[in-house]
Amino acid sequence: MDHQHTHSSNPRELQMARSMCWHCQSEVSGEYFCDRCVKVQPVSKETDYFTCFGFPRRLTIDPGKLEAKFYELSRAFHPDFYQNKSETEQSISFGNAATLNSAYRTLRDPIQRVEYLLDLEAGSVKEIRNSPPADLFEEILELQDTLDEYRASDRASDAGQQLRTTLQAEQQTLEERKRDMETQLQQLFTDWDLLQDRGEATSQARSERDRLLKQMRETLSNRTYVKSIINDLVATIG
């Protein structure tokens, strides 16, 4: 397994990953197959998705490498290859394959990936829960009023047409804003990875870490609000 991540994970987690083979009771530390009896081992509940793939906890991931690893692990865990094995092994294979599929789905998508990272780092992020963006909320609620008005209107009438034009313009502006937020997130990903690579334990590094996490949380939240109103717009005006 990849051990690059160890500097950022706590000792307790490492201890949890160390356990005994369910079959021959020899020690296995994070490996998927027992060294001695070659039986498949269940992926521990404590293993995060990054570790599951043998990746460090970074936000920029090469999709090709991720896919290759996913295919490799699928070949190791998929129930198709456990048809002739014991019931225990079949059940481990089922569980591992399901975990692997969730992990791939999460890490493949940059937004789900950063959401997941924020969950992992939750200890410090919960305290930095940002204040709601009141202006954005007002905008959304106002836009919703216009949407209601449009829904109630005769779409073919002049007023209906006019509302439609207004809403289309709003949609464009919002989509542009969403793109800006995504560019901003990309930058934050890079900053996060650089900070992790440096691996400093200074108080300055710690406050930089908190700042990045907080900013990611805020940008993500705002993006979600914008995205859900865009979805509503698209559903209404097509």
């Binding site: 198709d80 048809q83 002739n84």
Partner: peptide
């Protein structure tokens, strides 16, 4: 083919 994969005959193919 899938039956053969399950019986361990074909090992290079996997359907996800």
């Amino acid at each position: 083919v899938q039956a053969d994969i399950l019986s361990g005959g074909t090992t290079d193919m996997l359907l996800l």
